[in-house]
């Protein structure tokens, strides 16, 4: 569904590439976590899938199409096949729940009848039935994120990208959101979620792709959030390193205490 072939993205010639020779394939129906520190390239990865940016080198394929080859007037068609959810929800404050979800259908010219039929159905999927007339300000964070998810999937995209969807939510609410995402994935939508939330990744036990400094350092079918461990170097500085590269498995200093 999403395939990167030797993808390098350089924003600025002087600094290191945001993505450096990435090769990866995410299959139809997959649920994958994209993890890594800030600046590791997660956002760039998502931007390339959406064709917000073009790869400096290499090719990005979405649904079998090389996105660099899509003429700009066809880009909207590509984006209709991809739903996106953000950490900050990005709802329209002056529209109610129904209006926010319907907006995504109105702007691509869906008829009023189709909208009236589809929106309540999608709101049921995300667990918001009965709250159609609430404004975003009258909803909890978790509910707002559900609205955002409903808006992202209302046009039935094959791919759902989620950029830190639980970043603003408490752990209990996050579990609810993950259940919604899981349900959407069970219906056949490919879900790619960039996250920092280790509890969620550890408990979900799904595919984990870890980026570090623009390179993929780990891709496990059933992974945990991190295999990083702290290492104390000879000069006394402390640094996290992947377990495979680490010399000592534990922070010896702490053991002494």
């Amino acid at each position: 569904m999403i395939r990167f072939e030797h993808v390098t993205k350089i924003y600025d010639q002087k600094s290191r590439p945001a993505l450096d020779g990435i090769d990866i394939e995410i299959n139809r129906g997959d649920f994958a976590f994209l993890v890594g520190a800030s600046g590791s390239g997660k956002s760039t990865f998502l931007r390339l899938v959406l064709r917000e940016d073009r790869a400096t080198r290499g090719s990005v394929y979405v649904a079998g199409q090389n996105v660099a080859g899509i003429p700009s007037w066809r880009v909207p068609r590509l984006r209709r096949g991809i739903g996106v959810v953000f950490q900050d929800f990005r709802l329209l404050p002056n529209k109610d729940v129904f209006g926010n979800v319907a907006f995504a259908m109105q702007v691509i010219g869906k008829s009023r009848a189709v909208i009236r039929e589809t929106v309540p159905e999608v709101l049921r999927t995300v667990g918001l039935e009965g709250k159609e007339r609430r404004l975003p300000s009258e909803l909890s964070g978790g509910e707002q994120q559900r609205v955002a998810i409903a808006r992202a999937i209302v046009n039935r995209p094959g791919i759902l990208l989620a950029d830190e969807p639980t970043g603003n939510l408490d752990p209990a609410t996050s579990v609810g959101i993950m259940n919604v995402l899981d349900r959407i994935n069970q219906n056949g939508t490919t879900v790619l979620m960039a996250t920092h939330d280790d509890d969620i990744v550890n408990s979900m036990r799904r595919r984990v792709i870890e980026l570090d400094a623009g390179k993929i350092i780990r891709d496990e079918a059933v992974g945990e959030y991190t295999t990083m461990i702290p290492i104390i170097k000879a000069d006394g500085t402390r640094e996290l390193q992947p377990a495979s590269q680490a010399i000592a498995p534990f922070d010896t200093e702490e053991d002494d205490l």
Partner: peptide, 9 residues
């Protein structure tokens, strides 16, 4: 949002 859900130019 219009951009993201694929509204035309």
């Amino acid at each position: 949002i219009m951009r993201l859900v694929g509204a035309s130019k």
